[in-house]
Write a protein that binds this DNA or RNA. Structure first.
Length: 414
DNA sequence: TCTCTCACG
DNA sequence: ACGTACGTGAGAGAC
């Protein structure tokens, strides 16, 4: 179609060069920092391992093997198991299940801690230094441009789009991502609430649009609407619930999952969802509309006309159909955000080349761009990047906000 | 090579 | 009664 042709000519084709630039540029990683951190983690892991062995009264068990952990907890220690097993008949021992047992059983807490540290060490702290290219001294990821069904990029070998950030210890990893030399800094620019803003635009929901236009904290504003209180009266708990609801909406989640997520009764989750849609009627209409359109046409589209075909949208299986309906709701939102940042990347890369800047784009993490910037260029580039990101898609009904920071490493810049 | 688990947006 | 949130990539163990 015309729109798809335009998407290819103006976005997908030109971004190939941008991605090639990022890949060949690479990122500098400080291997000494990671090696030192690895030793710290190793010591903690060994201590935890000894503690677990002592508590369990056995040493012949591999703590990295989920099957052996399941045996230990639910057969040898006879902790009651009240969940569904995995499809291979094992006891599932994932975070969600072990968390519920952690309060009662110290050993479970320790196993979770052990897992967290072992994951951090093997997947990131030990792996990243090994990925340094001996010729360039830098780490070069590969981006998949045409894999993710929404239009997002994905990153592999190594994946630099899932570097830890949510926990204190995980975040440390980001200190190893550093500028090329003392004359440079890292600059990170990220969209604020981009998917929620885009769903406001796409749906045209007046309440959500107005909340963004007022510039209020969106989760607080949502809480005020849903719980029927003034902005100033929103409690932390209410804000947290509203944030989770906002997040869930983008995925088309139901009351069951929301209740699990919030640790509340299903009936309460149902009430929150009903209150939410009573306020955000345009959002509700959008969700129903996009599903209906998907049923008719067999595909959904993003703002730039990207298509995702949904072969199971008319499935006779209710479960299969429901899955596809959630995809129909989420894809236009996630995919439009992908469209938007791709356009911004093309414009920024052009500006860098045309302006003769020494700065280089080095990472894209879905709603964030990271640059290696000569200190002398920071002030000039900040507004160029910010404007390019904000104005990537013309005619949006919502204001777009971009946060920019700089620092001596990725953690500081973020 | 598959399964389980878990890291990110 | 069943299943139960969107999109990814990778390490370790089991087979």
């Amino acid at each position: 179609t015309e729109a798809v042709r335009k998407l290819y000519d103006e976005v997908e084709a030109p971004i190939i060069r941008v991605l090639a630039d990022i890949e060949s540029e690479g990122v500098r990683i400080d291997p000494d920092f990671l090696t030192a951190y690895s030793s710290v983690l190793e010591k903690e892991i060994k201590e935890l391992q000894e503690k677990i062995y002592a508590d369990a009264g056995v040493r012949e068990i591999n703590l990295n093997a989920p099957g052996q952990i399941g045996d230990l907890l639910f057969v040898r220690m006879k902790i009651p198991y009240r969940w569904k097993k995995t499809k291979t008949g094992q006891f599932s021992t994932d975070e969600e299940i072990l968390s519920e047992l952690a309060a009662e059983h110290g050993i479970v807490r320790d196993i979770l801690d052990y897992r967290g540290l072992a994951k951090l060490k093997s997947t990131y702290v030990d792996a990243l230094p090994r990925m340094i290219n001996p010729r360039t001294g830098r780490v070069h990821t590969s981006f998949n441009q045409a894999l993710a069904q929404t239009g997002r990029l994905s990153s592999q070998n190594p994946n630099l789009q899932n570097i830890p950030v949510r926990t204190e210890r995980g975040r440390e990893t980001r200190k190893a991502f550093v500028p090329r030399d003392a004359g440079h800094v890292l600059l990170s620019a990220d969209y604020s609430q981009i998917e929620l803003r885009l769903v406001a635009h796409i749906s045209g929901d007046q309440t959500l649009l107005e909340a963004f236009r007022q510039g209020h904290d969106i989760h607080t504003a949502t809480a005020a609407k849903v719980f029927g209180v003034a902005l100033e009266e929103v409690t932390k708990e209410q804000r947290y619930k509203a944030k989770t609801v906002n997040f869930s909406i983008l995925y088309g989640a139901g009351a069951h999952n929301l209740s699990k997520q919030l640790g509340i009764r299903r009936s309460e989750a149902q009430q929150i969802i009903e209150a939410y849609f009573a306020q955000f009627t345009g959002l509700k209409a959008y969700m129903e509309g996009t599903v209906a359109e998907a049923r008719e046409k067999g595909y959904v589209t993003t703002l730039l006309g990207r298509r995702r075909y949904l072969r199971d949208i008319n499935s006779v299986s209710a479960v299969t159909r429901a899955n596809e309906e959630r995809v129909a709701i989420n894809t236009p939102v996630q995919g439009s955000a992908a469209d938007m940042i791709k356009v911004a990347m093309i414009h920024i890369n052009e500006a860098l080349h045309r302006g003769g800047f020494g700065a280089r784009m080095i990472l894209q993490v879905h709603d964030e761009l990271v640059f290696d910037v000569p200190r002398t260029e920071v002030d000039a580039l900040r507004p160029i990047i910010e404007e390019a990101m904000k104005n990537a898609l013309p005619g949006l009904l919502v204001p777009i906000e971009v946060g920019i920071g700089t620092g001596e490493n990725w953690l500081e810049a973020h």
